[in-house]
C-alpha cells in the first residue's frame, strides 16, 4: 500500500469519515431544480406586472403628442419590476448551471430559453389577469409598494409636461372646473369643459383621475383627456371597478 493511500485510509478511519448519502445529493439537485422553477415563475410574475404597469400608465395614446416619446417610455418603465425580473433570470441561470448536468449547456442558449419562458409565461399570465391579481396582492400587503413600484406616480406627476393625476376634492358647478389634489399634495384647478372624459372616469369628489392636458398658469390646468386612475390601456373601457 502506498504512503498516500495509507495516510488517507488512516484519516478516514480515525475521523470516522462517512460518504455523504446519495439522498443528500438527490435533494441538493432537486432543490436547485426547484429554485430554478421558482425563479422562472417569479420572473414570469415580474414580467406580467411590468406589462400590466406599462399598460396602466396609459402612455401609448400620447407618445406621438409629446416632445420626447423616448423619455416618456423610460419614465413609464417600472424599474423595480424590471430589476426583479432580470434578477430572477440571473438566479434562474445560476441554479440551472449548478444542477448536475447544467454546465453542459451554453450560457447564451440557457439564458435565451429562460428569457423566452419568462416572456411567454408572463404574457400569458398578464392576458388571463394574473398580473392584476398579483399587483393588487402586493399593493395590499407591502407598505409603500405602490409609491415605489407603480410607474404611474412618475408618469402622471409632471403637470408642467401635461401629465397630472390626483384626487378630486371640489367640483365647481359653474365653468366646469374642479379642484384636484395632486400626487404631491399640491392643489390644481382643472378646467375640463373641452376635455374628453373616458366612460369609467367619474367626475365625483373623492375620485382619483389621470388628466392629460396643459398647465396654463401656476396651479391651473386645462384638461384634454380625463381617465380613471385604475384604467389601463385599451382595456380601459371594459375594466370593472
Amino acid at each position: 500500500m502506498g504512503e498516500i493511500s495509507k495516510e488517507v485510509l488512516k484519516k478516514i478511519k480515525k475521523e470516522e469519515i462517512k460518504p455523504v448519502s446519495r439522498l443528500s445529493f438527490l435533494l441538493k439537485n432537486s432543490f436547485l431544480w426547484t429554485l430554478f422553477g421558482i425563479s422562472i415563475i417569479f420572473g414570469s410574475i415580474g414580467f406580467s406586472i411590468v406589462l400590466f404597469m406599462l399598460e396602466r400608465t396609459d402612455i401609448s395614446t400620447y407618445l406621438s403628442s409629446v416632445n420626447s416619446p423616448i423619455k416618456l417610455i423610460l419614465i413609464s418603465i417600472p424599474l423595480l419590476w424590471v430589476f426583479l425580473t432580470v434578477l430572477s433570470l440571473i438566479l434562474g441561470y445560476i441554479n440551472f448551471r449548478n444542477t448536475q448536468r447544467g454546465y453542459r449547456f451554453e450560457f447564451i442558449k440557457v439564458f435565451l430559453l429562460n428569457i423566452l419562458s419568462v416572456i411567454l409565461l408572463g404574457s400569458l399570465l398578464h392576458l388571463v389577469g394574473g398580473s392584476l391579481v398579483f399587483n393588487t396582492l402586493f399593493e395590499r400587503n407591502i407598505p409603500f409598494y405602490t409609491q415605489v413600484a407603480d410607474s404611474r406616480y412618475a408618469v402622471w406627476n409632471r403637470p408642467e409636461e401635461g401629465f397630472l393625476a390626483g384626487k378630486i376634492v371640489r367640483i365647481e358647478k359653474v365653468g366646469e372646473s374642479m379642484l384636484v389634489l395632486s400626487l404631491d399634495d399640491d392643489e390644481y384647478t382643472v378646467l375640463y369643459e373641452q376635455a374628453r372624459i373616458r366612460p369609467l372616469a367619474n367626475i365625483e369628489i373623492g375620485e382619483i383621475i389621470k388628466i392629460r392636458g396643459k398647465l396654463v398658469e401656476e396651479n391651473s390646468f386645462e384638461a384634454f383627456d380625463i381617465m380613471p386612475w385604475d384604467g389601463r390601456g385599451r382595456h380601459m373601457q371594459e375594466i370593472q371597478k
Binding site: I4, S5, E7, V8, K11, I12, I17, K18, P19, V20, S21, R22, S24, F25, Q100
Partner: peptide
C-alpha cells in the same frame, strides 16, 4: 501536491455517492 492529493482522496471518499 501530496497534501492536496490527500485532501482530494478524502473528498472523493466523502462524495462517493454523488458519482453517476
Amino acid at each position: 501536491a501530496e497534501d492536496i492529493l490527500q485532501e482530494i482522496f478524502i473528498k472523493v471518499y466523502r462524495n462517493m455517492n454523488s458519482y453517476n
